[in-house]
Nucleic acid binder design. Sequence first.
DNA 1: GCTCCCAGTCGAAGCGCTTCGACTGTGGCA
DNA 2: TGCCACAGTCGAAGCGCTTCGACTGGGAGC
Lengths: 342, 342
Amino acid sequence: MPPRMIDVARRANVALSTVSYAINGQRAVSEETRRRIRQAMDELGYQPNALARGLASKHTNILALLFPTPERGLGVTEMEFVVGAADAAREHGYHLVLSPSELRNVRDLEQLTGQGLIDGALVMEVRIDDDRVQLLEQAGVPFSMIGRTSDPGRIDYADIDFEQTTRDAVGHLVELGHRCIGFLNHSPSAFSVGYGPTVRASEGFRRAAATADVVHVERLCGDNAAAGQAAFHEMRAAQPDITALIVMNERAIVGVMDALDEIGWRVPDDLSIVSMVSSTRVTEMMRPKLTTLEPPSTQLGRLGIQMLLDQIDGGAGERAPVQELLPCRLVIGASSGPPPAR
Amino acid sequence: MPPRMIDVARRANVALSTVSYAINGQRAVSEETRRRIRQAMDELGYQPNALARGLASKHTNILALLFPTPERGLGVTEMEFVVGAADAAREHGYHLVLSPSELRNVRDLEQLTGQGLIDGALVMEVRIDDDRVQLLEQAGVPFSMIGRTSDPGRIDYADIDFEQTTRDAVGHLVELGHRCIGFLNHSPSAFSVGYGPTVRASEGFRRAAATADVVHVERLCGDNAAAGQAAFHEMRAAQPDITALIVMNERAIVGVMDALDEIGWRVPDDLSIVSMVSSTRVTEMMRPKLTTLEPPSTQLGRLGIQMLLDQIDGGAGERAPVQELLPCRLVIGASSGPPPAR
DNA sequence: GCTCCCAGTCGAAGCGCTTCGACTGTGGCA
DNA sequence: TGCCACAGTCGAAGCGCTTCGACTGGGAGC
């Protein structure tokens, strides 16, 4: 029912193949012919059939976005990745299919790559040691990652620079005068499965604190208020002099606030709080409005797609892998200030 | 390079077409033959090529998810839609392509449907009067909506039951003893473009309040703290007796809290707050933990896909349209209580 | 004046599948 | 005993494109 290429060809009085060449420029077509073809296409409202094109040409203009849904659930930051990626893909004439593959369902991934549907994949929520990476490699599917494995080798990735980000967080607090800083990280399970941000922020914090020569203490903490509350009390028991807290666990923060109420502490007078890798969209809803290191989520999503397309369009040539670490942006809110004079 | 159907056929000593029939059951195949074919497929690790299949059969097993990115940005609730839809699609053997079409880019939509890539579309963020609906109709693409237009006709949709939800919100407050209730809605621009939830919640609130015979006042309010703060002061000026507030605007809430601080009011002692259509994921991060009417987001996403598939697989037959309104779940937090005895 | 080359065009052969019509052999039934 | 129906199988014709090899007619080069 929709017009086909042959209809365009007939109307423009040329061969089918000439229309094809006019459309994708694989061979020269004279200006006059091209004009007639364009006109015919317009008149018929012609749109090339994506499947036929893909079948014949071996590339589909479809990319997959692999996002597992972690126990933690997906938040604003992840949504921003997705939107960034989807926008970037569309701008380049690609479609993005969403593949909510659980890690356990390696089968799903095989199915996706085996069907010949996708030209490449963007892998989200990468773990330090991620099954999907091997799978994609041996399937020969071009891919890039948001996040990175412990040894990314020559795989393209874009990730948050946790080293820099923790340094910035610690730096901000040190500048304000803090000398004893706590770090509340994600859950023990996130750490033990090797979720990248959890592991890297942990290392980064330790190093940054050591470099700045401040007393520090870290805790892993379940993603809920109760865990946050308990964790803070434990931390304070370990380091009674604590005057500032870096939190990379949005859902634990409210628990910390509860804990502070219990001991009559106020933010930022008695304790400064800096949220790490939280969207301002979230921190602005908290009271006091939190100081945060906001992740460049949309940009990461776009970058991920960009890298992938470079890889695909770039063709076979040996390229240097693109591996970028992006910093978070320090957005100062009302939750950080000078330490109390205790 | 990957095995093709002909390879399977040769290995199982049958015709190509027999393999096809064995796979999708369009014709009877003997048990013995089927066994041999299955074995050959396993040995070769065969996976049908999705494009070839689609080209020949006229359906692709791909659905599109149409989500415009509103000025307001996409939040947790929207993410949950998306995940629900993606999961449901995968469970049924479909892929989901993300189409972040701006409403203005009607061209993008035409391109998507014209390419023959998708079997159907799920439309998110539907407005009272939505261009995309006409476009999809005239393109002959099966689709269903999350949300609904003013006159959905025979189009399938799943939406939140705003009538019921506002009634529940008002009911909860009335039960607590409140007699003067405010409603803080989304922005004037959301209202004027006819964003469904904004419009319907407005009507619902007015009706519910009238039925319950309580004094009520409503304001549209920009999606930010400053607007919320100003709006609350205005509301109180209009109705000094206000003792409870229903808010369907997550980002304005913190502004309301600021306003309360200014006049020395506390929640819920002086003012009860109920958040409408907010994920508990969000309300649990607020202090006090907000009472909310939590939307069945994931379920809506799944339902949307389900309806779409019924429509597609159901075939040509005249079905009754599936039009479902789902209630939100009242989750009582610490932000609502009896009115003060002023 | 002849060859050579190349821009520009055409026809045809696939890409890997679905599906149609045709063919075979068996069993039920009169 | 003969006929028909039908389960089970096969070959071939597309689906709507891309791409390859081949063909044509000028200009450029000598």
